[in-house]
Measured scan of single mutants.
Amino acid sequence: MAEIKEKICDYLFNVSDSSALNLAKNIGLTKARDINAVLIDMERQGDVYRQGTTPPIWHLTDK
């Protein structure tokens, strides 16, 4: 899980924002549900936040 978090942070640092599906595909996974639990956990920790569009767009925080 730590490896996936690191990949998410690296990708969002370079791209600035992404949907869960696009993010999953760009870090080597196939479906948004493969990454949603990790994104929600990271959101609780304050590492990422989502804009409430459908589907949500994920961003890194300034943390």
Rank of each mutant, 00 (worst) to 15 (best):
M1C: 03
M1I: 15
M1A: 06
M1R: 14
M1K: 14
A2C: 06
A2D: 15
A2Y: 08
E3F: 03
E3R: 07
E3K: 10
E3L: 03
I4E: 08
I4M: 09
I4T: 09
K5R: 11
K5M: 03
K5I: 04
K5A: 06
E6N: 06
E6I: 00
E6L: 03
K7Y: 01
K7M: 12
K7T: 00
I8F: 04
I8W: 00
I8Q: 11
I8G: 05
C9L: 14
C9S: 12
C9Q: 11
D10S: 13
D10T: 10
D10A: 12
D10N: 14
Y11E: 12
Y11I: 10
Y11L: 06
Y11Q: 10
Y11P: 10
L12V: 02
L12Y: 12
L12W: 00
F13S: 15
F13D: 13
N14L: 11
N14T: 14
V15A: 11
V15D: 05
V15Y: 10
V15K: 12
S16P: 11
S16N: 13
S16K: 15
S16L: 04
D17Y: 14
D17M: 04
D17A: 15
S18C: 08
S18H: 07
S19Y: 04
A20K: 03
A20V: 05
A20N: 05
L21H: 12
L21D: 15
N22M: 04
N22C: 06
N22V: 10
N22D: 13
L23V: 08
L23T: 06
L23H: 05
L23F: 00
L23D: 08
L23R: 03
A24F: 03
A24V: 03
A24N: 02
K25N: 09
K25D: 11
K25R: 12
K25S: 04
K25C: 07
K25V: 08
N26Y: 11
N26H: 15
I27K: 08
I27R: 03
I27P: 05
I27W: 01
I27V: 10
I27C: 06
I27N: 04
G28V: 02
G28P: 09
G28E: 10
G28A: 05
L29H: 08
L29C: 11
L29G: 13
L29E: 13
T30R: 07
T30I: 08
T30D: 15
K31L: 04
K31I: 00
K31C: 15
A32W: 08
A32Q: 12
A32Y: 12
A32S: 11
A32P: 10
A32K: 07
R33D: 15
R33P: 09
R33V: 15
R33M: 14
R33C: 14
D34N: 07
D34I: 06
D34K: 04
I35G: 03
I35M: 04
I35T: 09
I35Y: 01
I35R: 03
N36G: 07
N36M: 10
N36I: 05
N36D: 14
A37T: 10
A37Y: 05
A37S: 12
V38R: 04
V38H: 08
V38W: 01
L39V: 03
L39G: 10
L39F: 01
L39I: 01
I40F: 10
I40M: 14
I40A: 14
I40Q: 14
D41T: 05
D41Q: 09
D41I: 00
M42P: 04
M42D: 03
M42Y: 00
M42T: 02
E43A: 02
E43R: 00
E43L: 00
E43C: 01
E43N: 02
R44G: 07
R44N: 12
R44F: 04
R44S: 10
R44C: 03
R44A: 14
Q45T: 11
Q45E: 13
Q45W: 00
Q45K: 04
G46F: 00
G46I: 00
G46R: 00
G46Q: 02
D47R: 13
D47A: 11
V48L: 04
V48D: 07
V48P: 04
V48W: 02
V48S: 03
V48N: 08
V48Q: 01
Y49G: 12
Y49H: 12
Y49V: 14
Y49Q: 13
Y49F: 10
Y49N: 07
R50M: 03
R50Q: 13
Q51W: 06
Q51K: 13
G52V: 02
T53R: 15
T53V: 00
T54H: 13
T54Y: 06
T54C: 11
P55M: 02
P55H: 05
P55K: 04
P55G: 05
P56K: 04
I57Y: 01
I57C: 03
I57L: 08
I57G: 05
I57Q: 10
I57H: 10
W58V: 05
H59G: 15
H59P: 04
H59E: 08
H59T: 12
H59N: 09
H59D: 07
H59C: 14
H59M: 09
L60A: 10
L60C: 02
L60I: 03
L60F: 03
L60Y: 03
L60G: 05
T61H: 07
T61S: 12
T61N: 11
D62F: 00
K63T: 08
K63S: 07
K63C: 09
